[in-house]
């Protein structure tokens, strides 16, 4: 395996609704910032790959105009996944591993504000037997939370504590959308939104964009004073059918964690893509997180959740801790699909 590192990361401010700029206008400064930070010239990038989704944008081929933000001329080696940008990063990592290229630009964008995101996500479900019933994403998450409360050590108080900690941590993140000090008892006194979930258990609706530059070997060392070297990266999917899964645990995260090397050594920081509070608890359990690990110092998906971007931001935020010298070994996680169906785990070291 080649040594590959995240050498730069940039993101747009996460906002409830970006009214002025379209996706390309949002992406341009982000791509430019990530490239500038890497010192790798636009024309020198070996591979470009993005993650986005037509149903977020409400139109087919939404990714097509996105590449204008990169200025792909002369023509570039380029691809796109209809997935979170974290999975685009995996494709970029593969390209570098195959020896075809030495560097890659990965970007993602999504304006969740355009539609009713909880309803839009309903279209991810089995179109014959489940989607026609229109269970929305919050209701499905509530179903999972119910199982977790009944079957594991997850409690409503622990969930509220996740929310309070995430939004307190987000105070130090200038790009976060939801931040502030919240009292756990006060949160628990709030009414249910979809029982057993209260408003604080759910992510905000967010518009965002992010970009990451990957580089191999010496190029990485030249591009970044402290590259975040990828020591392991893996992703796994599990059954779609909710009835066929144990929703209180995340079997696919356990496998991906094992393959990525998450169960050896300790971590300073973990950035987990958990849009709902109980999901962070499920993931911490699946990844056997020690209490000493700083989980989601960025505030995580509970502080900003631009769907299709949030996972890539977790990888970028975790890498940025290494770049800044604040951490030596970090774990990043991204998820996709209803109730944590698909999960990616990445271990990075200074």
């Amino acid at each position: 395996m080649r040594d590959v590192a995240i050498v730069s990361f940039a993101q747009a401010p996460n906002v409830r609704c970006e009214t002025e700029r379209n996706e390309v206008e949002m992406l341009m400064p982000v791509v430019a910032e990530a490239l500038a930070a890497s010192g790798i010239a636009r024309g020198e990038i070996g591979f470009t790959v993005s993650g986005s989704c037509d149903y977020i944008a409400g139109q087919p081929f939404a990714f097509v105009s996105g590449i204008d933000a990169v200025g792909p001329w002369p023509p570039i080696n380029e691809s796109h996944v209809e997935m979170d940008g974290a999975f685009a990063l995996y494709e970029a990592w593969l390209k570098i591993q195959s020896g075809e290229v030495d560097s890659a630009l990965v970007y993602a964008f999504g304006k969740s504000s355009m539609g009713d995101i909880a309803e839009v996500l309903t279209l991810q479900l089995d179109p014959y037997t489940v989607a026609p019933l229109w269970p929305d994403a919050v209701s499905l998450a509530a179903l999972q939370a119910r199982v977790a409360l009944d079957r594991s050590r997850v409690t409503e108080r622990a969930m509220a504590e996740v929310a309070a900690r995430s939004r307190r941590s987000a105070k130090a993140n200038p790009n976060a959308q939801l931040r502030g000090d919240f009292d756990v008892d006060a949160l628990l006194a709030e009414p249910y939104l979809v029982a057993p979930l209260r408003k604080h258990d759910c992510p905000p609706v967010t518009d965002g964009a992010a970009a990451v530059v990957l580089a191999a070997g010496e190029l990485a060392s030249r591009s970044c004073a402290r590259p975040a070297w990828i020591r392991g990266i893996d992703h796994r999917i599990e059954c779609h059918s909710l009835g066929a899964r144990d929703l209180a645990r995340s079997a696919s995260t356990e496998i991906a964690g094992e393959k990525a090397g998450a169960f050896t050594g300790s971590f300073d920081v973990a950035e987990l893509h958990a849009p709902f509070t109980h999901q962070e608890l499920i993931l911490c359990s699946a990844l056997r997180m020690a209490p000493s690990v700083s989980v989601n110092p960025s505030g995580g998906a509970l502080a900003a959740n631009a769907v299709m971007v949030t996972g890539l931001i977790r990888l970028g935020e975790a890498a940025a801790r290494i770049h800044a010298g604040d951490a030596r070994r970090v774990l990043a996680h991204a998820t996709s699909g209803p109730c944590l169906q698909q999960n990616l785990v990445c271990v990075m070291e200074a």
Partner: peptide
């Protein structure tokens, strides 16, 4: 995805 009206259909095709 709009050709079939399923968002990211690979998720449900996984099974």
């Amino acid at each position: 995805d709009m050709f079939e009206g399923v968002m990211m259909p690979e998720l449900f095709l996984a099974d």
